[in-house]
C-alpha cells in the first residue's frame, strides 16, 4: 500500500502548488495611458477599460483594450485619434500577447515589486510588432499588481501623422500600464459565455 501513495503524493503536491502559487490573475479595469511631449504641446490620454490576464504558472499574459476607450483632455483630439490616427472603427482593439521571460513565481512570495521582462506581440492599428518591455509585478493582499512603462513609435504601427501637426506629436510616445488583477478561481470556470 505504500507505493501507490508515494506515487500519488508528488502529483498531489504538484497540483496544489500550481493552484496556490499561480492561478490566473485578471482585470477588466486596468489602466493604460500614454504621453506625447513636444515643445508645442503635451498630449495625454487614459484608458481604464483594459482587460488583462496574467498566468503565473505558464508565464503567459494577454491584454486587450478598446481603442475608443482612450479619453483625452480635448474632445476634438479624441475624435481625431479615433477617426484618423488609430482608425478605431476599422481596428477597434489593441492587444498584446506574450510571456514573462524571467519570472520565478517563487520570488513573488516576498513582498515588494519584482522586476521582470516581458516579451511578446503588440498589435494596434492592424500592425503587429515584437516588443520587449521591462515590467514590475507584485503580489499584495491576494492581488497581483503589475506596471510597465515603454516607448511606442507611431510610425512602427503605420500611424500616419500629417505634416501640419508633426511638430505637435512626439516621434516616440510613452505608454504606461498599471493593473490591479484579482485571482481567478478556475481557468475553466472563468470563461463566462453570454447567453442570448
Amino acid at each position: 500500500m505504500n507505493r501507490p501513495f508515494f506515487l500519488l503524493l508528488p502529483t498531489l503536491f504538484l497540483l496544489t502548488a500550481q493552484a496556490h502559487a499561480q492561478g490566473k490573475y485578471m482585470t477588466k479595469t486596468g489602466l493604460v495611458s500614454f504621453f506625447s511631449t513636444s515643445p508645442i504641446e503635451d498630449i495625454e490620454a487614459k484608458n481604464q477599460q483594459v482587460a488583462a490576464v496574467l498566468d503565473l504558472a505558464t508565464s503567459q499574459l494577454a491584454f486587450s483594450l478598446p481603442v475608443k476607450g482612450f479619453v483625452f483632455k480635448r474632445t476634438l483630439m479624441q475624435e481625431h485619434f479615433n477617426e484618423n490616427y488609430l482608425e478605431s472603427d476599422k481596428f477597434p482593439k489593441a492587444t498584446f500577447t506574450g510571456r514573462f521571460t524571467n519570472l520565478d513565481p517563487a520570488t513573488l512570495a516576498t513582498a515588494g515589486p519584482h522586476s521582470v521582462q516581458v516579451a511578446g506581440d503588440l498589435t494596434m492599428h492592424g500592425v503587429t510588432q515584437r516588443v520587449q518591455v521591462p515590467a514590475s509585478v507584485e503580489l499584495k493582499g491576494g492581488q497581483l499588481l503589475a506596471t510597465a512603462t515603454f516607448p511606442v513609435s507611431p510610425a512602427d504601427y503605420k500611424i500616419e501623422i500629417p505634416l501640419l501637426v508633426r511638430d505637435r506629436i512626439a516621434k516616440v510616445v510613452n505608454v504606461r500600464v498599471a493593473l490591479t488583477c484579482q485571482a481567478v478561481a478556475s481557468a475553466v470556470g472563468a470563461v463566462a459565455k453570454p447567453t442570448n
Binding site: 477588466k28 482587460a51 488583462a52 490576464v53 504558472a57 503567459q60 486587450s64 482593439k93 470563461v191 453570454p194
Partner: peptide, 23 residues
C-alpha cells in the same frame, strides 16, 4: 495557455450586447 489566453480574454471582454455610440 499559449493559444487561448488572448482568445479567452476576448471572449470575456467582448460583450455582443454592448451598444456603442457612433461618433
Amino acid at each position: 495557455a499559449q493559444t487561448d489566453l488572448l482568445n479567452d480574454l476576448e471572449k470575456q471582454t467582448t460583450d455582443p450586447l454592448k451598444r456603442e455610440v457612433v461618433t
